[in-house]
Computed example of a mutant assay.
Amino acid sequence: MEKVRERISSLRAEVEAAQTKSEEYEVESKRLAQEQLGLEHEIVSLTNKNRNLEVELNETLEKMKALKGLEEDDDLLKKEKETAQRKINLLEQELENSDKSLRETTKNFREADVKAEHFERKMQQLENIIVNQERKNEELKLKNQELQVLLDEFNAGLDDF
């Protein structure tokens, strides 16, 4: 009887540990979902910034074409061309940086997505373990009740002697 109680206590401890782990995984899953949402927002933001930079780059390129047509005023043309070229270089550099950042963010998003899937699988495994443990716990309760009935019958039989 004592062994049964110890086993039940042990199973209860295991169930509690599994529930604790499940809760931890749920919290981690929520955190990763939040992180994923943040990364998605960052991707959208970087995409919009990239689009705006491309528009600004196209506008700057159009200005540069217009400046090439004004070769009469050579000094002014050279200054404006240099200014435009610097701006283009800066914009191209910003565009490259934005593209690099977008690639890194996409990579991080994919990694976060893989981690989220991993934790979802872990969470499902833990939920399966919990269900199995609960089922085993119910079976043990039924066996305990049956053993209690047998013990009571045995004690009653001993009292009759």
Rank of each mutant, 00 (worst) to 15 (best):
G69N: 10
D160Q: 15
R12T: 08
R12S: 10
N89L: 05
S22G: 08
Q148C: 12
R7F: 05
G38Q: 13
K143W: 03
S29N: 06
F154M: 11
M64G: 01
Q93L: 04
L158Y: 02
E134N: 13
E23G: 03
A112P: 00
G38P: 00
F154T: 12
K49W: 02
L91M: 06
N48I: 01
L76F: 07
Q93N: 07
R5T: 10
E111V: 14
K81L: 13
N58D: 09
I88A: 07
K49L: 12
E153F: 12
L67R: 05
R121K: 12
N89S: 13
R31M: 06
T47F: 05
L70C: 05
T105M: 05
L158H: 04
T20M: 15
V149H: 14
E28M: 09
T60M: 02
L90F: 13
E138L: 10
K141W: 03
E42V: 04
Q85C: 05
L95G: 02
I43N: 00
E6G: 09
A18E: 06
R51Y: 02
E138H: 05
T106H: 01
R110M: 03
K63W: 02
D75V: 10
S10L: 15
K21I: 07
R31G: 10
A156M: 06
E139N: 10
L32F: 03
L67V: 11
I88D: 03
E94Q: 09
L61R: 10
Q148M: 10
L95R: 08
L32R: 01
E96H: 12
Q133H: 05
S98P: 00
N48M: 08
L32Q: 01
